[in-house]
Design a protein around this nucleic acid. Structure first.
Length: 243
DNA sequence: GTGAATGTTAACAG
DNA sequence: CCTGTTAACATTCA
């Protein structure tokens, strides 16, 4: 479930619960469930991979991590981490991180970093990249403070589409290429969303989990790259290495 | 059975 | 103190 666009879909699914009162909450999350009981959901927001269920004086933050899932009004698959019971409905979250945030969201979140959000800003991201001069672009793209919501799929697809090698050093990229990346991140993330909604996401992968370069028709490389050692799929022929 | 996977953070070692 | 590695969470799929 986890990259930003999938969380936008989760947000859509939860939206009907805005204004509804939580009758009871349970699960194995280590939070004080009694705080939610009798409280009305006043808003639902997302920031990158974070799902935010807002109550009057606090927010419940859900992060699906790698294997998280959810069900709405479906029989339990297994033990939910967080189960929200409404008058008629039940929402369950599994295998996720759950936390209660007491500080106002404006103090916790930099909305300009959310690649799916209305406040996403190319110029602000560009400024942040200046502090990452010596880092590999594959690591920088996964930095949630800059590209909140970008995961390994978006990283690989954006680098393939812009023909940039994942090992490229950020400050060796000409400014015009940096701009290309920043624009492609946003563009691909919304295509991801469209395809995910249509159930055809994986059909559109050009590099991620692919064997052959669709442009060059030669074998793609699969290698763990960067400090983060996350898997990269890339074409040595058409993706340029800047270093 | 094995290993890897759309993720992140805490603990530990040097 | 900084940096890098490992563990931990846990399931699903090939």
């Amino acid at each position: 479930m986890p990259e930003g666009p999938s969380i936008v879909i989760l947000h859509d699914v939860l939206l009907p619960f805005k204004g509804k009162k939580v009758i009871s909450a349970s699960g194995y999350a280590g939070i004080d469930f009694s705080r939610l009981e009798g409280q009305k959901i006043i808003d639902l927001k997302t920031w990158g991979k974070h799902t935010l269920i807002c109550f009057k004086n606090f927010t419940v933050r859900i992060h699906l991590m790698m294997f998280g899932s959810y069900t709405i009004n479906e029989g339990k698959k297994y033990n939910p981490k967080l189960s929200l019971h409404f008058v008629k409905d039940e929402v369950n979250f599994y295998l996720c991180q759950v936390a209660i945030l007491d500080e106002p969201l404006s103090k916790l979140y930099d909305w300009a970093a959310d690649v799916m959000g209305d406040k996403w800003s190319v110029p602000i991201a560009k400024r942040k990249l200046k502090d990452k001069a010596g880092e590999m672009i594959c690591d920088v793209l996964l930095d949630q403070k800059i590209f909140s919501g970008v995961g390994n799929i978006i990283k690989n697809e954006v680098l393939f589409r812009t023909r940039i090698h994942p090992d490229s050093i950020t400050n060796k990229l000409p400014p015009s290429r940096i701009t290309e990346i920043l624009e492609e991140v946003r563009k691909y993330a919304f295509e991801f969303l469209k395809w995910k909604r249509a159930g055809t996401l994986s059909k559109h992968w050009e590099a991620y989990e692919q064997k052959v370069c669709p442009r060059c028709d030669i074998l793609l490389h699969k290698k763990k790259t960067g400090k983060g050692k996350r898997q990269s799929y890339f074409c040595n022929n058409c993706q340029i290495l800047y270093k």
